[in-house]
């Protein structure tokens, strides 16, 4: 089991989709939301995922496939 912290960014058409609910249902992952901001046309959620590493990996691939952006927490770790 492991934990991963990620940020999801939703654009206009996806803001109303229950992506996080589906993620917890389709995969053996516990989702724990820490902070979020949802506007009319854009939203983001910062959350912790708890589960087997392979399960989290597949879960995140599925999230990306819905068009939601998945990024590491707190911005890129690559720097200039």
């Amino acid at each position: 089991m492991g934990k991963q912290r990620v940020k999801f960014t939703f654009e206009e058409t996806l803001v109303k989709e229950p992506v996080i609910y589906e993620l917890g249902r389709k995969f053996k992952i516990v989702t724990n939301i820490r902070r979020a901001e949802v506007g009319e046309t854009l939203g983001w959620v910062v959350l912790e995922l708890d589960g087997e590493e392979s399960e989290i990996q597949s879960g995140l691939e599925w999230v990306s496939s819905t068009g939601v952006r998945v990024d590491p927490l707190g911005g890129d770790v690559i720097d200039g």
């Binding site: 654009e11 854009l42 952006r69 590491p72 911005g75 200039g80």
Partner: peptide, 23 residues
């Protein structure tokens, strides 16, 4: 926008090519 939407960088200025800016 009140939020910064991350991008996939593609620039000649590699030292500025950070797609998801922390700050």
């Amino acid at each position: 926008q009140s939020q910064v939407i991350p991008v996939q960088p593609d620039s000649l200025a590699k030292s500025l090519a950070i797609g998801n800016p922390a700050d």
